[in-house]
Design a protein around this nucleic acid. Sequence first.
DNA 1: ATAATAAATAAACACCGTGTTGTTTATTAC
DNA 2: GTAATAAACAACACGGTGTTTATTTATTAT
Lengths: 205, 205
Amino acid sequence: MTDSNIDLRVIRTKESIRDALIKLIDEKGFEAITVKDITTKAKINRGTFYAHYQDKFDLMKKCEEEIMLELSSIVKTKFPSVMASLKTESAAVQPFPHTVSVFEYLNENSDIMRAVLGPKGDLSFQVRLKEFMWETLYGDNPFAFVKEESLLVPGQYLSSYLGNAMLGVVQQWLNSGRKESPQEMARILTTITANGPLFAAGIKK
Amino acid sequence: MTDSNIDLRVIRTKESIRDALIKLIDEKGFEAITVKDITTKAKINRGTFYAHYQDKFDLMKKCEEEIMLELSSIVKTKFPSVMASLKTESAAVQPFPHTVSVFEYLNENSDIMRAVLGPKGDLSFQVRLKEFMWETLYGDNPFAFVKEESLLVPGQYLSSYLGNAMLGVVQQWLNSGRKESPQEMARILTTITANGPLFAAGIKK
DNA sequence: ATAATAAATAAACACCGTGTTGTTTATTAC
DNA sequence: GTAATAAACAACACGGTGTTTATTTATTAT
């Protein structure tokens, strides 16, 4: 067992498949990709692809599962403390620390993140990511954001509002070239959420 | 010229194609649909389909263009007055009238809206819809929301935040069975936006 | 009503991607 | 070195695509 009982060729093959996938999403969008496209670009035999994955959806799913695991571990380790401070000190103005961590992760993996979250990316992943955010905010966990008695609106809509807003800012950042730093992006997101969009727009005083 | 010089058969054919498309998106998602699926469900010959549309993407595009036109006409007629009142009276608490109109439109066309905006819908349409909202809020038009000098954050991110938040609430409403009335949904959306999500959540006083 | 016309149909076509299978070749672990 | 394993290669039937043909059917204009 040199590395972890895994043949080096497998690693090389899977890496070239993964690289080909990311390039192809950029070029023609996930929808239009064929398995043949992938194997041609990865310079492997088509049969080899089917030895590792069922189809292009299976490949995509396995790439995305890695992302989801890493993202959720970031959130899970840092989110509870954020929620606790929010509830006691009320209305933080500092960027939430877990938000900075998330943007740093997105920044380090920007190639694949831009591919899957971009306009030619994978809708099903975006849906799953939203569901994860929705659950984190509203679902059955002890630190759910939106579980107060004093809600002015139904919690499910507040969760959708916040989750989609945050993801939208992330997508805008990724698609416009990531000119701001993760710290700056976390500040932007926190400012809008803490003060409300109208205040952040300078309309409401 | 009885109606508009168009053969009645064409209308019937196009309607059954459109109905089949909506049903199929519900059943298996846009991505997995084949032209053969559509013609089988619509009970028409496959050649007839190609007499009207290039492929399933062309069909989808033409359905969506109708929606975009109707939606943008609602927004364009009502949005300027909303913006004017917002700027002078500051921070409305009443639902914006154009928001009610949009929800009413979505309610009347809920079958197709749920299909295209749902989790198995068409990503490219959702992207185009967001671009339209982004333009309305931030783009090159006299009533752009996010064009003040006193912005606390870059306008592009504020637009993304708001546009995605609103669309997210709409999708949540459509996917959870439209239990609230359009008026109620407009109130919810306005409340969160005007007061900010943290206030609406009861966290910030 | 009828003739002209437009649309829908059925059948066939080559083309391409799919997913699988059997065989050969290369690499790894022992 | 040898056995085990993975990759490469080639061939296969299958199904959807997009187009074209001749033919039938429905509609329009008169």
